[in-house]
Simulated scan of single mutants.
Amino acid sequence: MNRSFRSPCLVLLALVLTVSIQACAAKGPSVELKGQTYSIEIADNDASREHGLMDRTEMAADHGMLFVFQDDTPRAFWMKNTKIPLDMLFFDADRRLVSVQHNVPPCTADPCPAYSSGAPARYVLELNGGQASKLGLAPGDEMQIHR
């Protein structure tokens, strides 16, 4: 191979590898539902679960928050200090959809109403209101988690 040709090729290869590594590192955790991928924040301890999406005035359409628990039990969530409508998707330990609370409005009363899973759940995924209907989600649909 000609030396004058090899040097630009090596530089290009190094650049492609660097960009690929950065893209993988920046990707972060996500979930997949019916072929649609959502970047997520993970709430897996008491403090992060308690704060959730409070005080957010907007959230990107391809973003959400995944609440992770250590056990399966009926869950109830509320919208205190949450300023955007959300879909609450409740999943069991096998990541199968148990139930959905659709387009839950921000809380304007005190106390705020609670929205229940109606069955044991280990994961709760909050997405922008309307996403569950847009995807046509139904009980039994599987969520894939990518960390």
Rank of each mutant, 00 (worst) to 15 (best):
E142M: 10
T73H: 13
D87G: 04
A14G: 13
R96D: 03
L53H: 06
P111M: 05
T18K: 04
N103A: 08
G136W: 15
M1K: 11
V104S: 10
W78I: 03
L12A: 15
N103T: 10
L125R: 06
S48G: 03
A25C: 05
G28N: 05
V16F: 09
E41P: 05
P139Q: 07
S30C: 06
A25L: 14
N81I: 05
L97V: 07
C107D: 07
Q101R: 15
A138G: 06
G130A: 00
G28M: 04
S39M: 09
P113H: 10
A47G: 02
V100E: 08
Y38W: 14
I84A: 01
S39G: 14
G136M: 13
N128K: 01
L66K: 07
F90A: 02
G52S: 06
D110Y: 08
L127Q: 01
V100A: 11
G130S: 00
Q131F: 06
K83A: 04
M1I: 03
Y38K: 11
M143C: 13
Q70H: 11
R75W: 09
R96I: 01
G64P: 10
L10C: 14
D141C: 11
S99Q: 07
N45Q: 07
S30R: 12
N103C: 03
Y115G: 00
V100P: 08
